[in-house]
Write a protein that binds this DNA or RNA. Structure first.
Length: 276
DNA sequence: CGGCAAACCTGCGAGC
DNA sequence: TGCTCGCAGGTTTGCC
């Protein structure tokens, strides 16, 4: 489900609820998600304090005050929900419950269980196997046209596919890949190495603007995404092409309107006239 | 390395 | 009403 803007929205919501809080009790309600929970997950977390929260690509990190960190990936349908009462019954797919020292409760809920949770005791989170090979943050200073050009040089795959590759650039998923290519006027089927410098000069700010606007809107809520407080994001109303097959292209007057094609088994939405 | 399909899961909407 | 089918914001693995 969640791409960078949705995970960032979750981080912002959890920061309010969890930063500075002591974990009074942690309940793990099943043995695994996409992969097994770390050994002794509940016992190792109980009594420890959460200092701060950060995001890397689509991963959320809860930093403990001793340098350890809980890594959370929401997969397609994962949610981190705040505001549950401790006397409420658990819901379907409530997999982990974090009870905090101020009486607050945070629940990790994930119907499809494509998410994962890890606990690492090492301080160097950037060296974690799940994060080590991930590319630059698209909203960071290190993401420039020159950098992106270098990372896609020699890649013969379609640019849409390459933007989904987390080792090329972090955090872009199926929605924002289509939207960024539409904004920059680039045909999603073009091979990555065929992009000219002038096109990459447009693609980088297109990625940055669509992600920034989506964060400002609280992310996109299609099926599963909820902010931790239960509120919906509203950037889905800002989509120009995603899930708009057959609708008119907002930026031109072509007859066909928005088209859908399948790349790597996943839908791509685009305008054949605007995107070349 | 590239490309593709399948796998991991559940839920929902469309169509019959 | 109820069933089947296809598809869904992600990532990994295996095969050619």
């Amino acid at each position: 489900m969640p791409e960078l803007p949705e995970v960032e929205t979750v981080r912002l919501g959890l920061e309010q609820a969890m930063a500075g809080r002591l974990l009074l009790r942690v309940l793990q309600r099943r043995p695994d998600l996409r992969r097994p929970f770390p050994p002794r997950f509940e016992a190792r977390l109980t009594g420890r304090r959460i200092d701060s929260l950060s995001r890397r690509a689509k991963y959320l990190a809860l930093h403990l005050d001793d340098g350890a960190a809980v890594l959370v990936h929401l997969g397609m349908s994962g949610r981190m929900l705040v505001g549950r009462q401790s006397n409420e019954p658990f819901g379907a797919h409530d997999h982990v419950v974090f009870d905090l020292d101020d009486g607050g409760r945070v629940v990790f809920n994930d119907a499809r269980r494509f998410g994962l949770i890890d606990l690492t005791e090492t301080a160097l989170l950037s060296e974690h196997p799940l994060l080590r090979d991930i590319g630059p943050e698209p909203l960071g200073d290190a993401f420039t046209p020159t950098v992106l050009a270098g990372r896609i040089a020699g890649k013969s795959s379609a640019i849409k596919i390459v933007l989904l590759d987390q080792t090329v650039v972090a955090g872009i998923g199926n929605i924002y890949a289509s939207e960024a290519l539409y904004r920059s006027g680039i045909d999603p089927t073009r091979s990555a190495h065929s992009l000219k410098p002038r096109e990459i000069d447009k693609l980088v700010p297109a990625i940055q603007s669509v992600l920034t606007e989506a964060i400002a809107a609280g992310g996109s809520s299609l099926r599963d995404h909820r902010r931790p407080d239960g509120e919906l994001g509203y950037f889905q109303h800002g989509f120009k092409v995603y899930d708009r097959e057959g609708e008119p292209c907002p930026d031109c007057t072509c007859r066909e309107g928005i088209r859908r094609l399948v790349q790597g088994g996943r839908s791509t939405f685009y305008c054949a006239k605007k995107q070349r």
